[in-house]
Design a protein around this nucleic acid. Structure first.
Lengths: 140, 140
DNA sequence: CCCTTATTGATAGTATTTTTCAATAAGGAT
DNA sequence: ATCCTTATTGAAAAATACTATCAATAAGGG
């Protein structure tokens, strides 16, 4: 089920604004702020308002169609979301991101955490930082 | 080396504002926003300005004396930082947090990520969400 | 106790996000 | 294809979050 079906089957409309945003985000590896998304789309001739960017980001987040990433400096940005459980790695130099779905089996770690903290463990947020292939060439 | 020594040995002063912030944060499990920190301290009679909260949060972050956590809804908040490499688990209901230092050995996962993404992997941000002991009683 | 200067609070300024509301367009019904 | 309903939109304004500036203060070495 692609993103259009996902939205449509939940009673949401496939609008130009949403198509433009999804296209931009899936073409971009670098996490974009709402403002950056707005500027990029205006430059491409879109008439979309910044408010719609915020609204649609919220909607797309609800359906896991976009992901929020946190840069090393704490700034947040959005990228197109992969399907299913996955995580991102972010280049410390150029901010470019990549998806990996090889998610470790955390069951052993979760047992330790539950023993140590008395919490019942649910889901998690895991993100790696590193150097992308291009920046390896440039900086190593 | 406690936080006072850490700051002092780097030429920073141990001010009332910093003592108040560190005391508040180490007494609180729930991540607090800059605004919440400011309000809480004013209620306790402090004359600190909101601006100093921001400035000192930045400073304390630089020395890993406080940590920024990301709530499930994406909101950020600050807690007193543990020593050394550690992670947090956050209660989905009451936002209360706990520290765990049993950090899995990620070397195998890192190899997989590097193979899959061609990135060189550096550090990571890992945070769990779950239910704290109190909320387990209330909601289960 | 004095002196230097990092730190502070207040004010003002900028950036970010949310609210409101009439106009528009998506898409099912006709 | 055209109409109708209403989710969605853009614009303007309001609310919130964060940063810059600067004179006054207080931390801490001498």
């Amino acid at each position: 089920m692609n993103w259009k079906e996902k939205l449509a089957s939940n009673g949401h409309r496939i609008t130009q604004a949403r198509e433009q945003m999804m296209r931009l985000l899936s073409q971009t590896q670098v996490p974009l702020s709402p403002m950056q998304i707005h500027s990029a789309l205006r430059e491409q001739g879109s008439k979309m308002g910044l408010v719609s960017v915020y609204r649609n980001l919220n909607l797309l987040m609800d359906y896991d169609l976009v992901c929020m990433l946190v840069a090393p400096d704490g700034n947040a940005g959005y990228v197109a979301g992969g399907t299913g459980h996955h995580h991102h790695i972010l280049c410390k130099v150029c901010q470019s991101s990549a998806i990996f779905d090889e998610c470790e089996d955390f069951s052993e770690l979760i047992s330790k955490i539950e023993a140590q903290t008395q919490f019942v463990v649910g889901d998690h947020f895991l993100q790696f930082y590193g150097l992308c292939p291009q920046c390896q060439e440039t900086y190593v």
